[in-house]
Design a protein around this nucleic acid. Structure first.
Lengths: 349, 349
DNA sequence: AACGATCATGCAAACGTTTTCATTCTGTGC
DNA sequence: GCACAGAATGAAAACGTTTGCATGATCGTT
């Protein structure tokens, strides 16, 4: 007997029914479909429930109608700014529909993700949101086999037949690269995280590379720097870069977090931004607008993605149909601020 | 018929039992207490379960043993850095115990918090963590009446008989104020958020004020500035402060987020830190160490709080006892970096 | 005043597990 | 080979709801 048993006198539907002088069926209906029970009866039930401190047991109900009222969200990480807006928006929209959020993070480990999906399935979630498209097929199969609505969030791809809600990361990256190139930069360094298990980062890098290629810029390998999503790591890496003789004129960061690190490296070494080094980010969260100078970046619509993802999931759960189109492209926005300098073409005549 | 019914052929324990040629009781045991079923039998069951793609339904089980395997965490907000480390640590520790996290945010609205607690209770969580001590009594009563273990996280108070895991916010604030005063500052401004429904902020402000008072410093009202937890708002407020003729020599911010905003205001106006203005924070999250110059602040042990809170909850759930002491004081740490200048006493002879 | 039609309620059978108790194995010591 | 203890399994009764079906109440119509 490892777990204690007694939940004191936690009243159930039976007690409420007795006190209100009706059957348990009526009590059940009074809570799940109030409109079909006569007003005076309903009030009597509500009074009894309130006096008893009754709280309905949805787990018991879900056993019968296979509908738990919970939704799962699995993200790579919670502890930095990247997904927090998404999580908040997702969670708060879920409340509008009286659903509860089950959440977990996998730290870019797709096997762990699969384990998490399974454990959420053991809790019989009604729907599931996963970040991006890179997943262990096991995860997706488990969901599919059980007909659990799944929406991929954060990234977007046009050629998709499975529901997704996100921004086009490749296009966003293309756009920021376009801006940097348009300002006359040709000697550019990229700071991107590990690309395995991370389609968002991969799409972003591809987008940047594509724009550079079409401008005739081909980056030597040492200009593509691997950098984790961590301010301190980015700062150190950029610091080292600044030390070297062969400095680029601009940095394109795979993420605003990395861009922030780059800022602090420059500030610590007295390199003016953008005079000494131009810096561009992708993401635009939290403080990016307020840094000095303002960070030129691409705003990813995290809140809207969260909200629309929930709406899609709810629709999927209630009607079985996702609102068209199945793949929702949420617009990103180029935010030109002050961290990318215009380079006059006369500096290498 | 608003909700579709069919979950295809989602196999249950019955199907597994049939395929393995045993009773459902044995299957159940094979999953919940594997040790008591004979190895060959167990393997047969596992094979059958795997072939069928069986995923056990813990909701159904919880109906019988009143134990859902889920834990609730309610925080004021998810969308900024303040609680994200806590949430991540909490969630990841929970996985170690095969529990799942139900999460929601109330945005400093305690009525909403009570509604959330109720809805989590409807899902029959086994334990609950709430941030701080300011709550609607309704919330606490609902939990108490049902004997659901509750731990208050984030803040700590010595005189508490209910389980809590946190740092002493008042002492932390006292400590940072002590450092600022110790550096010779007497003309200090405070930037603190709204104090209602927020014991952490209140304790912090009290701690600062207490240290200042004992140094004989009494702050005029206009030196105590109300500032939301928002980088942009903080930046604007500090910007306005810098414009005025009557500038303090140091700023004590109720939170690192506000301190970051102060940094950016100074940088934008070309005021050197700490030469032109000293800035101190409380929290030490994410990038505070990497800003330039490094922010002098107090490190709040968010990760450890999350981990210990889960351990406490698990112990409460399994044995009914919290590990002693009931109120766990997790040490904060003063982090002296470079944002507070030493003021020579000769500047006002 | 009687008759349907509609609305509100009750009865009882699910829902998919866990667990108690009883029964049937398995293996051990003589 | 036998008796017996202990381990492994099975049968069936919960757990707290929801819901299909049946019945009883209510109302408007003629």
């Amino acid at each position: 007997m490892r777990r204690r048993r007694s939940r004191k006198g936690a009243p159930g539907i039976v007690e409420v029914a007795a006190r209100a002088g009706v059957s348990i069926a009526t009590v059940s209906r009074a809570f799940s479909q109030p409109s079909i029970v006569r007003a005076p009866t309903r009030e009597r039930i509500e009074k009894a429930a309130h006096e008893l401190g009754y709280i309905r047991n949805r787990a018991a109900g879900s056993l019968h109608n296979r509908f738990s009222g919970t939704v799962g969200l699995v993200v790579p990480t919670i502890d930095n700014a990247i997904f927090s807006e998404l999580i908040q928006a997702f969670s708060s929209r879920l409340r509008d529909f009286d659903r509860t959020l089950l959440i977990a993070a996998h730290g870019y480990d797709l096997e762990l993700e699969a384990a998490i999906v399974r454990s959420l399935l053991e809790r019989r979630i009604d729907g599931m949101a996963l970040v991006g498209f890179d997943h262990d097929p096991v995860s997706v199969n488990m969901l599919q086999q059980r007909d659990i609505p799944l929406v991929h969030v954060w990234n977007y791809r046009a050629d998709l037949n499975t529901p997704c809600v996100g921004a086009d990361n490749r296009a966003a990256a293309w756009t920021i690269a376009d801006h940097v190139v348009g300002q006359g930069h040709t000697d550019i360094a990229l700071l991107f995280p590990d690309l395995t298990s991370n389609d968002r980062a991969r799409d972003r890098r591809d987008g940047v590379l594509q724009r550079l290629a079409s401008a005739g810029i081909e980056l030597p390998p040492h200009r593509i720097i691997n950098c984790p999503y961590d301010v301190g790591a980015a700062r150190n890496l950029v610091s080292a870069l600044l030390e070297s003789a062969d400095r680029p004129t601009a940095l394109i960061c795979g993420n605003d977090i990395i861009a922030h690190g780059a800022y602090f490296a420059c500030q610590a070494r007295g390199i003016p931004i953008p005079g000494g080094l131009s810096i561009a980010g992708i993401g635009d969260f939290g403080s990016s607008a307020h840094l000095y100078p303002g960070l030129t970046t691409v705003r990813m619509p995290a809140r809207q993605i969260g909200t629309v993802a929930v709406d899609t999931l709810i629709s999927l759960m209630e009607t079985g149909e996702a609102p068209a189109p199945v793949a929702r492209n949420i617009d990103f926005e180029l935010r030109v601020r002050s961290s990318v300098a215009r380079l006059e073409p006369d500096n290498s005549p």
